[in-house]
Structures are given as structure tokens and as C-alpha cells.
Design a protein around this nucleic acid. Structure first.
Lengths: 216, 216
DNA sequence: CTTGAACGGAACGGTTCGTTCCGTTAGAGT
DNA sequence: ACTCTAACGGAACGAACCGTTCCGTTCAAG
């Protein structure tokens, strides 16, 4: 057996297993972001593996969700931390909010909450992210670029609203969220300069109408 | 048997039945607005009646949902129509959006869609409401009070986001929606005068934290 | 050629939910 | 006062779904 720290070109069987590791986590991410109540089988199918390949790695669905949520919270902290490094208060705030949306932070954290018993690590990460977010907001408000009557607990409500946008495939959803995060930013911004233009196409009537056909 | 058009003070058995009629519809409204996937039994319980009292009136869950949706769409048309009568373009737009939120229009229409096969009447009402909404928007944009890069299909996305706000009991949900609809209005408004202050309390940390406890 | 780690997917048991069924009740009619 | 029956409450039923387990198969390593 080669050293555990062997290089990336693992061969044959072992390489397949390693690929499955990431395939399962990637698939779980995609599936649960789209629907937090999705069955485990959907994850396995999306990953292109059997159910047992998944259960070999996670003893239960709850563990999988907990792992995924941990990943989401780490992403949240990362987004907040890097936005905090931006000097201009408004740009920092903008970067933060866009980052939260782009990384599906809310779908991977709060939307998964309540479906597993959180560990202290979950709590610690959530807290850390919250502290960073609060600092970003306060700085922007002190600089007078975010309206003063917004408070830190308003932010999760904004993520929640943006996470609710689900229309079409994941790519389209991301595009629409990019569009509407700008609308939220315009609403949060202290009345001063006009905001930038809205990005991305608005939904078409066909996209909206598709919601009226009975479920597949 | 008295005339069908008899006055309101019906006595005894018939009165009870009539009361159940409205109790069931009211309960269904409350329950399905909170959770479109709620079981039929939850409606019966909320109405304080047995399951059979409900099935006597609606042959299936699908019929109940269709009826409820029809009611929601009629409310939508009503909100749009009365907002259209307001002269000032911005006030009209404001009235419309606030009315849509206050009447749970989105939860009673689109969120129920896909759960039953829509009738032509559903389509006609949805269309009528859409036409009115478009007129309200266009008028506001022509007057320069709503940003020009917003299009009519953006509006359902706004409703959708507001309908996603679910935190605590129905009363609290309504209050939070009143708060955030103002933020949306601020974002939609053409850059000019500063918007009014945010109403209602923001969520507390306790409210937000409650989402992390495993489901009951 | 042998071996066993990893795998695919069928099977199992439990839960949920829409719908039906039946015994009960209380007002309406005489 | 006594039926009669419309309306009712809720248990029971059957189907569907889902998390988890089990077993036969595969294929690279030795």
C-alpha cells in the first residue's frame, strides 16, 4: 500500500472511490439546495452511484445533512471574512450580500437546520459568521451608506427571501438571484446615488406559467 | 323548507352547517397559506370539525385547493382593481404591492398551483390580475417613480420572496411582511425622495435561533 | 486465480396521508 | 313525544413514500 499522502493520480479502484466521495457531496449539495426535503435516493442518483455507496460514507441522512451544513457555514464565514477585507464600506457590504447569494449560504445552512441536531461546531460557526456580518453592516451604516433603520437581524430575512427564488434549473436560479440581490441592495442602500442597473433577464411569462402545470 | 334566500338568522342544524361552511374555508386558508403541503386532517382540526364534514363539501383535496385558489385569485383581482383607482402613480403602486402582501395573494395562488389541474376560470382570473398589475406598473414607470429597468414579470418574483417569509405565528408573519415590503418598495422606487421608515420590529435573535432546533 | 473492499439496487419496515365507512346525534316534521 | 334522516366525528383502509439494511456482483490487487 502506498503512503496515505500519495499524490493525486491514484489508480483504479481507489481513484473511483475518491471520485465518488466528491461526487456524492457535490450531488447532495445540488439536490438539497433545490429541495431540503429531497430523499436520499435522489442524491445517490444525481451522483451516479448506488445508495449503498452513500451509506458507506455517512451512517445516516442526518449525518449527511450535518456535514453539508457545516460546509455551508464554513462558506458563510469565508464569504463574510473576505468581504470584511474590502475597504470601502458600501463595496464591502455589496460584496458580502452577493457572496452570500452566490454561495447558496442560506440554502446550505438555515434551510437545513431543524432537520438534524446541530453540534457545537455548527453553533460556533453560525455565531462567527453572524458577528462578521454584523460588523460589515455596522461599518456600512456608520458610513451612512446603508439606511439606519435596518438592523442585523434583517439580513437573514433578506437571504431567506432570495433563497426562495426557485425557477427552472440551478443555473437560471442563480441568474435570477443575481438580479434580485441588486434590488435588495438598492432597497437597503441609504438614499443617495442611484443604484446600478439590474443584471440578467427577468423571468419570461413562459417560465412563470410553468408553475401552473400539475406536478410531474 | 323556507326559501333558499332566507335571511341570515338560520336556526339550529342549518345554521351549524352554514357556520361549518365558512369555518372550513377559513381554516383551509390559514393552514394552506402556512404550508401548501399540509394534510387535509390539519384543515379539519383547525376548523374544529371532523374529516367527513370537509369531504361532504369537497369531493377531494384537489377540489378544495382549486376553490381556495379561485378565492385567492379573486382577491388578487380586487386588490389590483382598487389600486388602479388610486390617482397618484406611486401611491397606486404602493397600495397594490402592500395589498398583495396583506391579502396573502401569492400564497393563495401560485403556491397552490401545481397541486391541482387549473380550470379555465383560474387562467382567466390570473390573466386579468396580470393585466391590471402591468398597467399599474407601467403607469408608475411612465411617471418616473419606479425604476425603468423593472419589468412586469419581476413583480411575481417580488411576491414570491415576500411569501417566503415564515417566522412564528401568522400574525408575526404578517407583521414581518409589512416590514419587508417596504424594503422592496424602496428598491423598486426610482432614485429620488428617500423612502419612509421601516415598520414593525425586526426579528429577534431568539426568533431566528428557533429555526435551529430539530423539528417537533 | 483468489480475495475482499466497494458497489448497485432490491427488499423491508415504518410512517404519512387521502379517502371511505360506519355508528352516533340532534334538529325537523308530524 | 316520537320518528326520521341529514350531518357529523373519527376510526379504519390502502396506497405511496422514504430511510435503512441486506445480499449478490464486480473488479483491481496480490
Amino acid at each position: 500500500m502506498p503512503h496515505e499522502s500519495a499524490g493525486p493520480p491514484l489508480s483504479g479502484r481507489r481513484a473511483q472511490a475518491a471520485r465518488n466521495d466528491t461526487a456524492i457531496l457535490t450531488a447532495a449539495r445540488e439536490v438539497f439546495v433545490a429541495d431540503p426535503d429531497a430523499p436520499v435516493a435522489a442524491v445517490a442518483q444525481a451522483a451516479g452511484v448506488g445508495i449503498s455507496a452513500l451509506y458507506r460514507r455517512y451512517p445516516s441522512k442526518e449525518e449527511l445533512l450535518a456535514t453539508l451544513c457545516l460546509e455551508g457555514l464554513r462558506g458563510f464565514v469565508e464569504v463574510a471574512r473576505s468581504a470584511l477585507e474590502v475597504d470601502d464600506p458600501w463595496t464591502s457590504f455589496e460584496t458580502f450580500l452577493r457572496g452570500v447569494v452566490a454561495a447558496d449560504v442560506h440554502s446550505l445552512s438555515v434551510h437545513l437546520a431543524g432537520r438534524f441536531t446541530p453540534t457545537p461546531e455548527h453553533a460556533a460557526l453560525a455565531d462567527e459568521a453572524g458577528v462578521h456580518a454584523e460588523r460589515i453592516l455596522r461599518r456600512a451604516q456608520d458610513a451612512g451608506v446603508v439606511r439606519a433603520d435596518v438592523v442585523d437581524t434583517d439580513l437573514p430575512m433578506v437571504y431567506e427571501q432570495l433563497a426562495a427564488i426557485r425557477l427552472g434549473d440551478p443555473e437560471r436560479v442563480a441568474a435570477l438571484r443575481r438580479r434580485y440581490v441588486e434590488l435588495h441592495l438598492a432597497g437597503l442602500r441609504a438614499a443617495s446615488e442611484p443604484p446600478g442597473p439590474l443584471p440578467e433577464r427577468a423571468p419570461t411569462h413562459a417560465e412563470l406559467g410553468a408553475r401552473w402545470v400539475p406536478r410531474t
